[in-house]
Design a protein around this nucleic acid. Structure first.
Length: 255
DNA sequence: AATATTGTTCAGCA
DNA sequence: GTGCTGAACAATAT
């Protein structure tokens, strides 16, 4: 599930449930999701705050930070009794509560890092699109630095951190731009609209997810199937492959 | 049974 | 150097 809006949900969930509780023990059920640093050094500490950058979650544990990347199927579960089916790692708190990192497909990664800034720099992550510092000017500057297809740029984490297959399609759908369009063929007004729509799509998704609501019918995500009716212009939804990923778009209004 | 899946990385190639 | 493709990772659902 995890692109930027989903990781934002996990971050809020972590913040609501797992802060300021002393960690008694860290139990690793499957070491394949562990990074190189020993998570056992978290014992006796507590998480004091969490933050997100793109699809990455960071939790402050004193002079070291927990870092989680959720892969394709990562999730968090705070519980008191039974761990979830695909729990790969569990933090036991001294108050009897537990926080599980669950991940069916094992593509995620849990590790420690000295600080979010250092992690972001070392891994060359681009700006977070919801960061107020990320403005139209900054977006335009990124467009000039790259060639290729617009969808590939949106999904590239070194360019912008947090957009994946679904929300790239969604932002391009709303902007009436074909995902295969070469970056240098975007008009100025289209770049401006795309910038605004990236933020709108992500922020709107966070808003309705935080209310427990489902995607509105006007979202492409509700119509990701070959031959579906476009909810915007009554065109036909087509399926293709762009940047190696299954891509849906409206053959009529996305040009 | 075959196919698909919200991510990332890397080899090979143009 | 850049960008694209396909494969690999792994486990499930349809």
């Amino acid at each position: 599930m995890p692109e930027l809006p989903e990781v934002e949900m996990y971050t809020r969930y972590f913040e609501r449930h797992a802060l300021r509780q002393t960690i008694a023990r860290v139990r690793v059920f499957d070491a394949r999701i562990c990074g190189s640093r020993k998570l056992s050094q978290l014992a006796g500490r507590s998480f004091e705050r969490v933050q997100r950058h793109g699809k990455h979650l960071f939790a402050d544990a004193g002079d070291i930070w927990l870092h989680i990347h959720f892969g394709m199927s990562g999730d968090l579960a705070y519980y008191f009794d039974e761990p979830p089916r695909f729990a790969r790692l569990v933090f036991d708190f001294e108050n009897g509560a537990h926080l599980a990192y669950e991940d069916m497909r094992l593509f995620g990664m849990v590790d420690l890092t000295p600080s979010p800034d250092i992690y972001i720099r070392e891994h060359g992550l681009g700006p977070d699109p919801l960061d107020p510092q990320f403005n139209l000017r900054a977006f335009r500057a990124l467009l000039y630095k790259r060639r290729g297809r617009i969808k590939a740029l949106l999904m590239s984490q070194e360019v912008i951190a947090g957009i994946g297959n679904l929300y790239a399609d969604e932002a391009l759908f709303r902007s009436s731009i074909d995902p295969r369009r070469p970056i240098d063929r975007l008009r100025d007004d289209e770049a401006k609209a795309l910038f605004a729509n990236i933020r709108r799509v992500l922020q709107e998704t966070i808003d309705f997810k935080s209310r427990g609501a489902d995607y509105p019918g006007r979202f492409l995500i509700q119509h990701r199937e070959e031959g579906e009716r476009c909810p915007k212009c009554a065109g036909t939804i087509r399926r293709t492959i762009v940047a190696g990923r299954t891509t849906y778009y409206c053959a009529k209004h996305q040009r």
